[in-house]
């Protein structure tokens, strides 16, 4: 059976880390299984871990008044979920819910935070990788925000646009 260390070593997210750092990280990890519907994290809770999804799929979602629960993004095999543990104030901003049975390695962020403080090389290496995760999330969010498939403004009501001037008086 492969150890968590093997797993971390092979994962592209942790590529190029020194074996020492991999060992440290692996030391903070444990295997977990979530059934469909189980939460890996809840909005507002302390973010004390992050997850490497080994198999399955999780949804990052948020509860809204208008639309109920809205899935912001899904994350699956081989991907990372959770960046809140490394950025203050270390609280989850979204819910993370297993959409199907999901095997993940949970990494203890609280423990890693301490190690990063002591070993800035490790801290830098991880922060660099997580800023990548953040950047991807931002890009995806921006694209979603553009609503590129939506009906363009003015398309539906061709001439009603004139009404815009209404009330400018």
């Amino acid at each position: 059976m492969r150890t968590i260390e093997d797993l971390i070593k092979e994962h592209r997210f942790f590529k190029d880390l020194s074996s020492e750092h991999i060992e440290t990280i692996a030391g903070c990890g444990k295997n977990m299984v979530f059934k469909s519907g189980e939460y890996l994290a809840r909005e507002g809770n302390p973010a004390d871990q992050f997850y490497v999804i080994r198999q399955g799929k999780v949804a990052i979602d948020i509860v809204t008044v208008e639309k109920g629960t809205v899935i912001v993004q899904t994350v699956q095999d081989g991907e990372i979920v959770g960046w809140s543990w490394i950025i203050e104030p270390y609280y989850w901003r979204f819910d993370v819910r297993a959409v199907e049975t999901t095997h993940a390695v949970a990494l203890d962020g609280k423990c890693l935070r301490g190690k990063c403080e002591k070993d800035h090389d490790l801290g830098y290496a991880l922060l660099k990788r997580f800023s990548g995760v953040l950047a991807r999330r931002l890009e995806v969010a921006r694209l979603q925000f553009l609503d590129v498939y939506g009906v363009q403004q003015g398309q539906a009501a061709v001439q009603k646009t004139k009404g815009k001037r209404h009330g400018t008086k």
């Binding site: 799929k57 949804a59 990052i60 979602d61 639309k67 109920g68 629960t69 809205v70 899935i71 912001v72 993004q73 899904t74 699956q76 095999d77 081989g78 959409v99 199907e100 991807r136 890009e139 995806v140 694209l143 979603q144 609503d147 498939y149």
Partner: peptide, 23 residues
Amino acid sequence: VTVDQAGKSWKGNVGVVTTLISR
């Protein structure tokens, strides 16, 4: 298949189509 927006009952992917390429 992925969608930009979905409710809780959706079991598929959420995220823009570019996120699928790495998969």
